[in-house]
Amino acid sequence: MRVLVVDPDPARAALVAEGLAGVQPLEVRHAALFDRAEAAAFAPDVIVVASDSPDRDTIESLRESTAASPRPVVMFVDRSEPGLAEEAVRAGVSAYVVDGLAANRVRAVLEVAMSRFQLMSQLRQDLEKAKADLASRKTVERAKALLMKERGLEEDQAYRLLRKLSMDTGRPLGAVAADLLAFAGVLKGNEP
């Protein structure tokens, strides 16, 4: 496991590394400040940020970093201001622990954060797939309506025609429907 520990206090960073003792294989790198380029070059499996109190610049850098390269992030802070925990979670932080940094807790918190990160990643993928499926379904419905209007077909006949075109070309039904709508737009003089 590759862990990037971001903490201006070397003693606190050592406490995080101590909490990971026994994890094999383990590579821990310490940085006083979060640097996106350094994080990208090291490619950690998890980022641990420890500080007295998180600052908005660090949270914004984490947001940009996790958007470009999603990975679990754990924050251990000694104190927190109202709203910072929510802002940190929105920036991609998987676990936000206030006044709870102890060597014996580090490993368990990281394991939970990594599990939560995996779960959230799967939920995001499922949501994106559902959105794409819904968009495809809407496109197919519009293409069926076009075929019904232009060719005088019943709904099931229009669907069968789209499905046959899909199978004949080896392309997904939604892609065939989108092409049909684009071609119809061109023939009517509309730009795609």
Results as ranks from 00 to 15, higher is better:
Val109His: 07
Gln122Trp: 13
Arg105Leu: 10
Val109Ala: 11
Leu33Tyr: 13
Ala67Ser: 13
Val89Pro: 09
Ala103Met: 07
Pro192Phe: 06
Arg79Cys: 06
Ala40Ser: 08
Ala130Lys: 15
Met75Val: 13
Pro54Tyr: 06
Lys138Ile: 10
Lys131Phe: 15
Gln157Gly: 09
Lys164Arg: 07
Asp52Glu: 12
Arg124Gly: 13
Ala145Met: 08
Ser136Asn: 14
Tyr159Leu: 04
Gly152Glu: 05
Lys129Tyr: 15
Pro54Asp: 10
Arg2Asn: 01
Ala178Pro: 07
Ala178Asp: 09
Val6Gly: 03
Phe117Cys: 08
Ala103Asn: 06
Gln157Ile: 04
Met167Tyr: 13
Glu64Leu: 15
Gly92Glu: 03
Ser80Glu: 12
Leu4Gln: 01
Met114Pro: 10
Lys138Asn: 14
Glu18Leu: 09
Gly185Lys: 09
Ile59Cys: 06
Pro70Met: 10
Ser53Ile: 08
Ala68Tyr: 08
Gly92Met: 06
Glu86Trp: 08
Leu147Ile: 01
Ala32Gln: 03
Asp45Asn: 11
Met167Pro: 06
Phe117Leu: 12
Pro10Glu: 06
Ala132Asn: 14
Gly92Tyr: 01
Lys129Met: 11
Ser65Asp: 04
Ser166Cys: 02
Arg137Leu: 13
Leu146Asn: 08
Val112Gln: 07
Met148Ser: 05
Ala17Leu: 00
Leu20Pro: 01
Phe34Ser: 00
Asp133Lys: 15
Ala14His: 03
Leu127Cys: 15
Pro172Ala: 10
Gly152Cys: 08
Leu84Lys: 11
Gly174Gln: 01
Lys188Trp: 11
Arg36Glu: 02
Gly22Gln: 02
Lys138Arg: 13
Ala108Tyr: 15
Gly185His: 10
Pro192Gln: 13
Ala158Cys: 02
Gly83Gln: 15
Glu18Thr: 11
Val93Lys: 01
Ala11Ile: 10
Met114Trp: 00
Val140Lys: 08
Pro72Cys: 10
Gly170Met: 08
Val3Ala: 01
Leu181His: 08
Ala103Tyr: 01
Ala14Val: 06
Ser80Arg: 13
Met114Cys: 08
Val28Gly: 01
